[in-house]
C-alpha cells in the first residue's frame, strides 16, 4: 500500500486511542479525587505532568491553575493549543481519516465525523457542564464505536494492520503513562502513601482501564503497586496491558512485510521482538524502580514508532535506487 496512506492509517488510530486514554484518565481521576484525602497539589497536577504538558500549561495558565481541577480538565479536554487534548486529538484523527477517505470504510468515516460534530456541538457542551461523567462515557462509546466499525468493515489487508499497529502502539505508551501517574500523586515509592489512598488509587487506575474485574479474576493478591503493575504491564491476554499491546504490534509488523523480501521492516520487527522479550524478562524479576521501568517502556515504544516510520512510511534511498527490482511484485490492480 501507499506509504503515505499507511502513515495516515497509523496516525488516525493513534489519535483516536489518545482521545480514549485522555478521557479515561480524566474520568478516573475525577472519581478518585472525590473520595481520596489528598493535598491540593496532588489532585490534578499529576494529570498535566503525566501527559508531558507541564511546561506549556504553566506557561499559558500559571502555577495556581495546576491545582485547579476545572482548569486542568478544560485544558485536557477543550484546549486547541494543547497537543494532547481530546479536541486536538480528535481533530487530527478526523483529519487523517479525511485524507484517506478512499481507504477507510464509509462507516468509519461517518463514525469519526459524527464524533467530531458531536464534540463541537451543543450536546457535548451541555453534558460537559452538567453531567461530566456521562460526557466521558459518551466519548468512550464513540471511540469504541469507531474501533468496532473498523473491526467490522475493513478488509484484512495492510491498511487495517497499520491502523491496529497505531492503536496498540499508542495504547502501550498510554498505559505506561497512566501507571506512572502514581509517582506524581502518591510519591516515589508505594510505601510512602497511606494504605487507604494506595488502595483507592489502584482501584481507580484499574477502573480507568476497564481492568478491575479482570484483575480480580487473575490476581489473588492484595491491591498494591506491584500487583497492579504486574497485571497492566505483563498480562499477555488483557487487551489494555502493555505486554499484550506490544505483542500485537510485533505480530502485525510481521504481517505487513512482504513474504518474499524480509529486509523490508526488519528493523522494526527486531525492535518489537526485543521489547516484548524485555517485558517478559520482568516476570520473574523483583520490581525495583517502577518509574524507571515505565520510562524505559515509553521511550522504547517511541523508538519503535520511529523505526516503523523509517521502515514503512518513508522508504529509504536504497529502496528507490532500483525500482525495477521491486516493480513486478505489484498487486493486481485496480
Amino acid at each position: 500500500m501507499i506509504s503515505r496512506v499507511a502513515e495516515s492509517c497509523f496516525w488516525m488510530c493513534r489519535y483516536m486511542e489518545r482521545v480514549e486514554s485522555t478521557a479515561r484518565i480524566l474520568a478516573v481521576n475525577r472519581a478518585f479525587v472525590m473520595t481520596a484525602n489528598l493535598p491540593a497539589s496532588a489532585r490534578w497536577r499529576p494529570m498535566v505532568i503525566a501527559v508531558g504538558e507541564e511546561p506549556s500549561f504553566l506557561n499559558g495558565h500559571g502555577e495556581a491553575a495546576m491545582n485547579d481541577g476545572a482548569a486542568v480538565q478544560h485544558y485536557l479536554t477543550w484546549d486547541k493549543d494543547c497537543p494532547v487534548s481530546i479536541l486536538t486529538s480528535l481533530k487530527w484523527a478526523r483529519e487523517n481519516a479525511r485524507t484517506i477517505r478512499e481507504t477507510v470504510s464509509q462507516e468509519m468515516w461517518r463514525s469519526v465525523n459524527g464524533f467530531w460534530l458531536w464534540l463541537n456541538g451543543a450536546e457535548a457542551q451541555h453534558l460537559h457542564q452538567h453531567h461530566r461523567h456521562r460526557f466521558y462515557e459518551q466519548i468512550l462509546q464513540y471511540c469504541q464505536h469507531f474501533m468496532g466499525v473498523c473491526y467490522g468493515t475493513m478488509l484484512r489487508e495492510p491498511p487495517y494492520d497499520f491502523m491496529r499497529i497505531g492503536f496498540y502502539a499508542e495504547r502501550a505508551g498510554q498505559t505506561a503513562r497512566l501507571l506512572d501517574v502514581h509517582r506524581h500523586m502518591l510519591g516515589d515509592t508505594p510505601r510512602s502513601a497511606p494504605a487507604a489512598e494506595e488502595s483507592l488509587f489502584w482501584t481507580a487506575v484499574l477502573r480507568s482501564c476497564s481492568a478491575y474485574d479482570m484483575y480480580l479474576r487473575r490476581s489473588r493478591r492484595t491491591l498494591s503497586a506491584e500487583s497492579v503493575f504486574r497485571f497492566l504491564v505483563l498480562e499477555p491476554v488483557f487487551p489494555r496491558a502493555i505486554r499484550y499491546a506490544l505483542e500485537q504490534v510485533r505480530r502485525l509488523l510481521q504481517q505487513v512485510r512482504p513474504a518474499d523480501n524480509l529486509t523490508i521492516g526488519a528493523t522494526s520487527v527486531a525492535m518489537a521482538t526485543a521489547l516484548v522479550a524485555r517485558i517478559d524478562g520482568l516476570r520473574h524479576a523483583p520490581l525495583e524502580d517502577l518509574h524507571q521501568t515505565l520510562t524505559d517502556i515509553v521511550d522504547a515504544t517511541a523508538e519503535l514508532c520511529g523505526a516503523i516510520s523509517s521502515d514503512f512510511f518513508n522508504p529509504t534511498a536504497s529502496l528507490l535506487s532500483d525500482p525495477t527490482a521491486e516493480a513486478d511484485r505489484s498487486h493486481p490492480a485496480p
Binding site: 500500500m1 501507499i2 506509504s3 523480501n261 522508504p315 528507490l320 525500482p323 521491486e326 513486478d328
Partner: peptide
C-alpha cells in the same frame, strides 16, 4: 516518482509501477 521514464508509486513494499 519517475525513474527511466516509468512512473512509480511509493508503497510500504517499495516502489511499484
Amino acid at each position: 516518482f519517475v525513474h527511466k521514464e516509468i512512473v512509480y508509486v511509493k508503497t510500504t513494499w517499495g516502489p511499484q509501477r
